[in-house]
Amino acid sequence: MAFKIASSPHINRQLQTSTVMQRVLLCAMPALVVQCAFFGWGTLIQVILAMTVAMCAEALIMQLRQRPVIHTISDNSALLTAFLLGVAIPPLAPWWLILIGTAFAIVIVKQLYGGLGQNLFNPAMAAYVLLLIAFPVQMTSWVAPITAAQHSVSFLDTLHIIFSSSQIAVADTYRLGIDGTTMATPLDTLKTDLHSGITTADSLQKLIFNGWAGKGWFWVNLTYLAGGLMMLRLKLIRWHISAGVLGALFICSAVAWAWEPLTHVSPLMQLFSGATMVGAFFIATDPVTAATSNRGRLLFGAIIGVLVYLIRSFGGYPDAFAFAVLLANISAPLIDYYIKPRTYGHLRG
């Protein structure tokens, strides 16, 4: 029996990009299940649609750029982008919305800059911002969680709503259902209420809240948190960015809440609402568009956290993760320029 003797460094088997992406997707799967349980089949259909479009767009661009098609497609990064966009848009949004968004994310935000590893911005979030700015009506009508809705929509009806050529006609057909089905998100409701002078405590008594957080949203966020912790355990991500995001958001909202609890949202509600958990663990941690040193990552995450708090509290939009991530993406090169890790054996500075 011969032992193979290799010289140092003794490195573990490196994870392939495709394996990393696959595991990240698997860690996010439970949350998709929970989201479907609370918000109906729409999310699943959107995710599948987005993944198909992403694959086709990537293959097309690779063909145009005369690069190996199969090799690029099988790195699964387009699937992850598609997944993040699919869970971010409203479940009953028309099919062309996700089509435009995914094609934009893959073709313009990712491949025009040179493909995986070269893009300046997080593709899913850039596409989300594009959709939010271009189609504000479609992007802001979320479905109510099933426990709060008057009617639930079956799988076939969901398909019909998403794929019908004329949304308005179908909306008339499903008028009863639609009225009872779509409504503003908890963060949106809270924002409108606070603007019209209703206190946080009174607003939280509404049907869409379960007392201190949005119905359904709490569980979705909790599953994403579990998925994120699983990713940390598997060493797919490091803790710095997520800790920066959640820490900064918690501190900002805790200070404001301690100052004036009537008109501010509690820190726990901030952490378990909207896109907080999926953003902190699955979106902000994108290694391509984030800062690269550990201290830089903490700062990068903190920028996102503070921006999310500021836009949620004082901005025009109820949730702010996409904008915050894009703004932090822009500042990532600057962070990397000023925060460089000290080389061993050298003095600081």
């Binding site: 313009i108 594009l130 700015i133 271009a134 189609f135 004329s166 949304q167 308005i168």
Partner: peptide
């Protein structure tokens, strides 16, 4: 068009 593609009308659309 039932839903105008707002982005094309806004300055970012001109940049694209």
């Amino acid at each position: 068009v039932n839903t105008p593609f707002l982005l094309a009308m806004l300055p970012p659309g001109a940049f694209f």
